[in-house]
């Protein structure tokens, strides 16, 4: 196994261009598990931890451009007010040690339906920035992930990072795990209110082959909010509407049964999470937050 250790982003792209089969590694919290269990024996490993350019985040026209090497710990400490759902999701990742090493970039690279950081990215219409020596392209996260552990990353490309709008309103993230910490999602749900646009963003995690937005539920609740003039009045959402929202989220899920839980449980649980997270986010909105 060859170990490539570029010192700059340019060098990293060149290395990837020269060795398409090279597996990029940053925190190693996914890659090393696969290698230790002998499920993967890459010919080249491309260590990105010495590349400074991807370990920064910056503000760019009301959006955040976050490098693939920004750890969960830094998301939690640096961006908890600006990107609350992503910070909440980051808090549920692994243990402190894992959060100190793991990155959202890695979560994107793995493209697991259970990736904790993905639902918040979907709910806020984030884009993934992909780069090669030829140039860069931006792909909406929902188009980036194409299946379980599959994405549109080309073999000569690396993930630079992602671009996500600053929260325009309350956001929530909730995750089911059988254990009360350090657990892979049985299922999860991310939600973002966009009061300026009168929109509600959602995403179901770990209950379909990819993270999926609950489009019908979004449209339904947007209709309820518009009809009742609730964005303006900041009035309460009826219990019936909350329930219906949960049911519609359930209908968008396409879960399977596996060692972590049954399909039926996952379906029901995402409905409960949807109802609860909407009620919390709406309560925040009503409080003027």
């Amino acid at each position: 196994m060859e170990f490539l250790q570029p010192a700059t982003w340019r060098e990293a792209l060149e290395a990837k261009s020269a060795h398409h089969e090279a597996v990029p590694i940053f925190g190693g919290t996914d890659v090393m598990v696969e290698m230790n269990f002998d499920r993967r024996r890459p010919g080249y490993v491309l260590d990105l931890t010495r590349v400074p350019e991807i370990q920064v985040w910056e503000r760019e026209n009301g959006k955040f451009r976050v490098g693939a090497g920004v750890t969960y710990t830094r998301i939690i400490t640096d961006l908890k007010n600006e990107l609350p759902a992503l910070a909440m999701a980051s808090r549920t990742v692994g243990s402190p040690q894992i959060r100190n090493r793991g990155t959202v970039g890695g979560n994107l690279g793995t493209s697991s339906p259970a990736g904790d950081a993905l639902p918040p990215l979907y709910a806020s219409d984030a884009e993934v920035e992909l780069a090669s020596v030829e140039g860069i392209r931006r792909v909406p996260v929902g188009e980036f992930v194409t299946g379980p552990k599959r994405n549109v990353l080309r073999r000569e490309e690396l993930i630079w990072g992602f671009i996500i709008p600053e929260a325009e309103g309350p956001q929530q993230y909730a995750k089911i795990g059988t254990r009360n910490a350090m657990v892979i999602a049985v299922c999860s749900f991310g939600l973002a209110l966009h009061p300026a646009r009168r929109k509600v963003g959602t995403c179901i995690g770990s209950a379909a082959p990819t993270p999926v937005r609950a489009k019908e539920a979004e449209e339904f609740i947007e209709g309820v909010l518009a009809e009742g003039d609730l964005w303006e009045t900041r009035g309460a959402i009826s219990e019936a509407a909350l329930r219906r929202f949960g049911e519609m989220v359930e209908m968008s899920a396409r879960p399977i049964s596996d060692v972590r839980g049954t399909a039926e449980y996952r379906r029901r649980a995402v409905g409960v999470l949807a109802r609860r997270t909407l009620s919390w986010a709406w309560a925040e909105y009503r409080d003027g937050r």
Binding site: M88, R91, T92, Q172, Y173, A174, K175, I176, G177, R179, N180, A181, V183, V272, L273, R276, W280
Partner: peptide, 16 residues
């Protein structure tokens, strides 16, 4: 959250 079912996963604020 750490003193609620589900812990830091933020699944309940007392509901249920």
């Amino acid at each position: 959250l750490r003193r609620l079912p589900g812990g830091v996963s933020n699944v309940t604020h007392g509901e249920g």
